[in-house]
Amino acid sequence: MDTAVQLVLLTLAAGTPLVYAALGELVAEKTGVLNLGVEGMMLVGAVVAFIVAARTGAPWLGAIAGIAAGAALALVFAVVTLTLQANQVASGLALSLFGVGLSAFVGLDYVSVVIEPIKPLHVPVLADLPFVGALLFTWNPLVYLSLALFAAVQWFLFHTRAGLVVRAVGESPESAHAIGYPVVRIRYFAVVFGGACAGLGGAYLSLVYNPSWAEGITAGRGWIALALVVFATWKPSRVVAGAYLFGGVTLAQFQAQALGVEIPSQYLAMLPYLATIVVLALISRDVVSIRLNAPAALGRPFHPDA
């Protein structure tokens, strides 16, 4: 029983960075902006969070700094693509490459530094309940927060007027503009929100999941988050389910080693990437479903004067 609880907790922990990054990207994509820079924003979020946590000794301050760093990087992307009308695919790639370079550069002196991580909660009384206590009331605060974020995004997008406007901007920016909505400003907000989430996802990695800094600590999670949004056919609940599924796959390599399975670690390390490819192919196969669910204006630039 204990191992089962442990497995659930580990899966939640492994899926959480993906929940943050993919939910943020989902909101940006809902307004029609494809930001391929998630990996870069996560890395910069992770390194800035770690540096601030190491300097101040306050991991929560680090998390906030990670959010700000991700948002700042997203703002660069927004200026380049929304104001300067650059190609979104190329700019997103540029942002990822920039983030990889920037994070490696500023993080160099922090590679073997030890920090105080953000500790898991121990909800009084409830956490001591048998079974459910450990299962539900001993998570890390950032794991609870990720689910709160999911609920908020779901509610905002599908149950508020503002959410409707956001979705309209992603379906037909021309119509939204004609009715008088500030399309570019809405896209700015969505992109920066996506960056903030990616930054927090990165901060979770360096402050909670594996409290340390190493070059490329995200190991492609930003790209997997992008794939998750497609898997989920742009639905927040499926993003979360997919994130935990991939969290579980990531765990497989550690679990197999713990169980003493005699297989070179490289095979197991390949699993998340291969799983991403396979699931992406399976989901994308249904062209109709993708076309119906994808924001119609995804990746298409919009210039109000054009």
Binding site: G40, V76, V79, V80, L84, Q85, A86, N87, A90, S91, L93, A94, L95, L97, F98, G99, V100, G101, L102, A104, F105, L108, E215
Partner: peptide, 19 residues
Amino acid sequence: SVTGLFQGTLLLFLLAADV
């Protein structure tokens, strides 16, 4: 690693200047 930083910066400025 300053190389990686310059590489990314180069592409971002290029795309911006392409406006």
